[in-house]
Design a binder for these strands. Structure first.
Length: 848
RNA sequence: GCGGGCGUGGUGGAACUGGUAGACGCGCGGCACUCAAAAUGCCGUUCCGAGAGGAGUGUCGGUUCGAUUCCGACCGCCCGCACCA
């Protein structure tokens, strides 16, 4: 008899909240650091509390959740925490616009988003939740900052910084994209300010080397970080100039030194400034260089321009007089801001030399016999030195070493490694961030706040309505006594970059004592994070900073870990069609594009109409959901319509997780149908049924094994397909003990993905406890092997027949069977058989 | 320009280390159930062809008994980086 309780439709609305409450009650997902089980730390990038969860979060957290629940079923003690990256500009912007306090705004947003996350039934350890704006969090961050200061990794200096005029604050190099602020989009200006820096460059080599150990990271992300760190090795040396001065240049191609035909300096190089004194033409040229754009497109099209200073440089080996130019393509902040230009082997130099009629010499050739081949473009490749005096015949690598050796021997320069990576400026002139725990005293200088006076808490009564630093203009907050001499002194009013907050939050998740940031031994229990999941947009910023902080903390003895994230997965975006019309409704001649949201539109197989007027709208490209294109769906709406499990299932279906997932109404409806279908399937559990169904047993066990390996590989789309197949097989099978076992198994297999439905059915079927605490079903290896296989029979590589035979049938028998096939005989058609290839259990190919 | 990735039905995508291309989902078509609809179930669905059969994984070529998979050239799309000396 099947179970009549399953005749009614599965009521997600009611079941979701019941089981969410049951999990909370049973504290199912609280991680126990003292557990004897093997540990697994599954982490998704914690969200900024913007106010609501968007569909991208849902996809991200669903993936992590499936993995976390699966790991728990496999006997791991799982740490799967959640918190809030709660400091930052949007809270201050909201304060400016709406007059709400950043703290109140942030906490209200957190409450709203937490409710949404709870509705999705994620197996999160909420007991470890924190927000980075909690003084209990940022106070510990201040303590760590002081530790790094004591360890020599924090310093303060005046420097030219990237100033974001909209956010009214400084940005790190990494936070400037195409000359604009990464968040505000404003054109960044250069300013001189006293800034706090973290010595990330001290770990440049180590951060680079560490990338090789991160085999669980996407190649793409490792390449991006490698490029960002930007190691180059070369030679720095001085030219003697005709004006009696010296000019330091840096080159990665010392082997091409005999091909140098001019020298160039940046427009803001001191030599350029010197030349410009009393020289209007030079001044005009320098001004021209400085107004040049910095975007990729502008740079690409920018013409190479130069200004001949009239100064010449003496070639260190030939003694030739090389003209010194000011050139717009030389950057002051890389190397020494001056280069030796080798037109034959650097395209920029080639372009420049062509324009100004300077010599272009070949000094590297593929082989010595093409030493005089003409150059039509710069040849940057490998080869041997030619026309290069004592270097002639040497390979590029050897010649580099030889030139460096000679220059060093002459005391004229030295081999040098140059990095693109710069120290990380962490000062922000904002309110809503971690106060930097230092005090400026006229007598004692910059004094750390004693640890027993931490946290340095943000004042609540601030005026955020006007630009500028709210802490700096606060009437009382900054006035304190110097901890050393007791005299009146001033607090540091800069706050830390919010990327500092996210550089160690995973450590605080692993361990959160009240008297210190974390316990080193407890952290060692959980770290490294076994699987980290988040967006590709953090490939450099967050992930590089977090790797650096982990090293810096190891440097001062706070942690034993080096790489915080063993495996990284970057998931694709959720996309959706766009719907639009071209309108002229503003009365102008130019059409404007007006977008419509999916719920204003009726979509059919061959087009779309607007619900309002039943007239057609254009169906546009499938792109990332964004408010401006109105192609968004609200998680709360679809959860209400279909239930959390259908939404979760959709997030896992079809598209491989690293690729974009196109949202569709038809797709989510299909998921909703499958939830109901499974529900009915569970109702087919027939306690009275007996008997064996070997074929179904085999399918069940194959599915158990396949779904497990698919989840471990994060190939959720494949696991989903497997589960559809198993469901169909169960549907078709007759009642039996095997079928009951199959139903019990599929229930367990879908439980990480559809936990509410699974829990409801588990309960209805009278299974003990919560399925959230159940174990993954065991696989019988004997059932994974088929005893019959289908073998393809080809003639000339074309499929002619298939044979179903016992597994392991010997080659000669297989061959005989294949040749006996009527279809095969027909296509051989009496031709002579030259060769027969037999792959046991797979195919027979007959060559005639 | 440099680096990386991708190209498979109407559609999202499967295909283990070269071995039956198109699993599974969506859509579409047909049928059953129903007074009817919804829901559900069953069957079909790469293309051409009535059929036997033929063609087919961006294009062209190569290696192989056999290529979505390996190699070369080209075309197209996406992403990242960039006057980094």
């Amino acid at each position: 008899m099947t179970d009549s309780r399953f005749d009614v439709r599965f009521d997600a609305g009611q079941a979701d909240s019941r089981w969410q409450a049951a999990w909370d009650e049973a504290r199912c997902f609280e991680a126990d650091s003292a557990s004897a089980k093997p540990k697994s730390f599954v982490l998704e990038m914690f969200p900024y509390p913007s106010g609501r969860i968007h569909i991208g979060h849902v996809r991200n957290y669903t993936m992590g959740d499936v993995l976390a629940r699966y790991k728990a079923m496999r006997g791991f003690e799982v740490l799967h925490p959640m918190g809030w990256d709660a400091f930052g500009m949007p809270a201050e912007n909201a304060a400016m616009e709406n007059g709400v306090h950043p703290a109140g705004w942030t906490h209200a947003n957190i409450a709203a988003m937490k409710k949404q996350l709870k509705q999705l039934g994620f197996a999160l350890d909420w007991s470890r939740e924190f927000a980075t704006c909690d003084p209990t969090y940022y106070g510990h961050e201040q303590a760590l900052f002081l530790d790094l200061y004591a360890g020599g990794l924090v310093y303060r200096r005046e420097s030219a910084v990237n100033w974001d005029p909209v956010d009214q604050t400084v940005l790190a190099n990494e936070q400037v994209v195409d000359g604009r602020g990464w968040r505000s989009g404003a054109l960044v200006e250069k300013r001189k300010l006293n800034q706090w820096f973290l010595k990330i460059t001290q770990f440049a080599q180590d951060l680079l080397d560490g990338l090789d150990t991160l085999q669980g990271w996407p190649e793409k992300v490792r390449v991006m970080q490698e490029n960002w760190i930007g190691k180059s090795t070369g030679l720095q040396f001085a030219f003697d100039l005709s004006n009696g001065e010296q000019l330091e240049v840096y080159t990665t191609r010392p082997d091409t030194v005999f091909g140098a035909s001019f020298v160039a300096v940046a427009a803001d190089h001191p030599l350029a400034a010197g030349v410009a004194v009393g020289n209007a033409e030079a001044q005009a040229f320098i001004a021209l260089c400085k107004q040049g754009g910095t975007t990729a497109a502008e740079l690409e099209t920018a013409e190479k321009l130069g200004f001949d200073t009239g100064v010449t440089a003496h070639h260190p080996f030939t003694g030739a007089a090389l003209p010194v130019y000011i050139a717009n393509f030389v950057l002051m902040d890389y190397g020494t801001g001056a280069i030796m230009a080798v037109p034959g082997h650097d395209q920029r130099d080639f372009d420049f030399a062509t324009k100004y009629g300077l010599p272009i010499m070949r000094v590297i050739a593929a082989s010595a016999d093409v030493a005089d081949a003409p150059l039509t473009e710069a040849e940057a490749g490998d080869g041997v030195c030619v026309h290069s005096s004592f270097l002639d015949g040497m390979a590029v690598a050897d010649a580099k070493a030889e030139v460096i050796r000679r220059v060093e021997a002459e005391g004229r320069g030295q081999g040098k490694t140059v990095w693109r990576l710069r120290d990380w400026g962490v000062s922000r002139q904002r309110y809503w961030g971690t106060p930097i725990p230092f005090i400026h005293c006229d007598a004692c200088g910059v004094v750390p706040v004693p640890k027993d006076q931490l946290p340095v808490v943000l004042p609540e009564d601030v005026d955020i309505s006007i630009p500028g630093s709210p802490l700096a203009r606060h009437p009382t907050w900054k006035h304190v006594a110097c901890p050393q001499c007791g005299a009146a002194a001033l607090r540091e009013t800069d706050t830390l970059d919010t990327f500092v907050n996210s550089s160690w939050y995973f450590l605080r998740f692993a361990s959160q004592p009240t008297d210190k940031p974390f316990d080193t031994a407890e952290v060692a229990q959980w770290l490294p994070v076994e699987q980290y999941i988040g967006g590709i947009e953090h490939a450099i910023l967050h992930l590089l900073y977090a790797r650096f902080w982990t090293r810096a903390l190891a440097h001062v003895g706070a942690v034993d870990v080096k790489e915080p994230f063993a495996s990284l997965f970057t998931q694709g975006m959720v996309t959706h069609e766009t719907y639009y019309r071209q309108t002229y409704d503003d009365g102008s001649d130019h059409p404007r594009v007006r977008y419509y949201s999916p719920d204003e539109v009726e979509r059919s197989a061959n087009g779309a109409t607007l619900k309002n007027d039943s007239k057609q709208v254009e169906v546009g490209k499938v792109i990332k959901m964004s408010k401006s294109k109105k192609n968004v769906v609200a998680p709360e709406d679809i959860i209400a319509d279909f239930g959390a499990d259908a939404v979760r299932w959709f997030m896992l279906s079809d598209s491989p997780p690293e690729r974009d997932l196109p949202w569709s109404e038809a797709g989510i409806e299909g998921c909703g149908r499958f939830v109901q279908r499974l529900w009915r399937l569970f109702g087919q559990f027939d306690a009275g049924a007996t008997g064996e169904d070997k074929a179904l047993d085999r399918k069940t066990h194959q599915a158990i094994a396949a779904v497990a390996s698919d989840i471990e590989a994060l190939s959720f789309n494949k696991a989903v397909a497997r589960l559809y197949e198993l469901a169909s097989a169960i549907d078709k099978a007759a009642p039996s003990a095997s079928r009951n076992e199959a139903i019990r198994s599929i229930l367990l297999l879908v439980s990480p993905m559809m936990p509410h439905l699974a829990e409801e059915a588990w309960h209805a079927l009278g299974q003990p406890g919560l399925i959230a605490n159940a174990a993954w079903p065991a696989v019988d290896p004997a059932l994974l092997v088929e005893d019959e296989v289908t073998v393809a029979v080809q003639v000339q590589g074309k499929l002619r027949d298939t044979l179903t035979v016992a597994k392991g049938l010997p080659k000669d028998q297989l061959e005989a069977l294949a040749l006996a096939s009527e279809k095969v005989q027909r296509s051989i058609d009496g031709a002579q058989i030259k060769k027969v290839i037999v792959v046991p259990d797979r195919l027979v190919n007959i060559v005639v």
